[in-house]
């Protein structure tokens, strides 16, 4: 099953490699991993999307907690949460396609960030499913390149990843 794990870690050199190394050494999956400093510059927050049996996910949580640099870990998918991912798609936009792409972008509440004679660069934010749907909607054919950030997640309401 797909899980989205949020963790706070001390901003030490090599902290990211400890997490990435843990996943590869123990054979855990990583679908995506995002990391950036928080409002507290000494901390980074990471969102890892992974999958595995309940036993594997339990071990992932425990092994992450065991890393000395990790302050706290939460499996967001255990409760209500919000998940967002940013995608930039550069598409070939010529002739009548330009209008159709603009329309689809509006429907998906995306924005066109860059326009050239033959291309649009579209920004889209949402859960993974929404981004996938957009790709399906416009079809593979016009896509020149795609870049996605991987999911960032946060708990709803009072669900807070404590320091």
């Amino acid at each position: 099953m797909r899980h989205i794990i949020s963790l706070l870690m001390v901003n030490e050199a090599g902290a990211l490699s400890r997490v990435a190394g843990l996943f590869s050494a123990r054979g855990y999956n990583i679908e995506s991993l995002t990391v950036a400093p928080t409002e507290d510059a000494t901390l980074s927050r990471m969102t890892i999307v992974t999958s595995g049996s309940d036993a594997v996910i339990e071990q992932i949580n425990k092994q992450l907690n065991k890393l000395i640099d990790v302050v706290s870990v939460m499996d967001l998918s255990e409760g209500e949460h919000i998940e967002r991912e940013l995608m930039l798609v550069k598409v070939r936009a010529e002739g009548g396609d330009r209008e159709e792409l603009k329309r689809l972008t509006d429907i998906f509440r995306g924005r066109i960030l860059d326009v050239s004679a033959h291309t649009y660069t579209i920004e889209l934010t949402g859960a993974r499913v929404k981004l996938d749907s957009f790709i399906d909607a416009i079809g593979r054919e016009p896509i020149l390149e795609t870049v996605r950030t991987g999911a960032s997640g946060i708990g709803r309401g009072n669900r807070i990843l404590n320091q």
Partner: peptide, 8 residues
Amino acid sequence: IDPSSIAK
């Protein structure tokens, strides 16, 4: 003492 040793 190590939670990760339990139920591994």
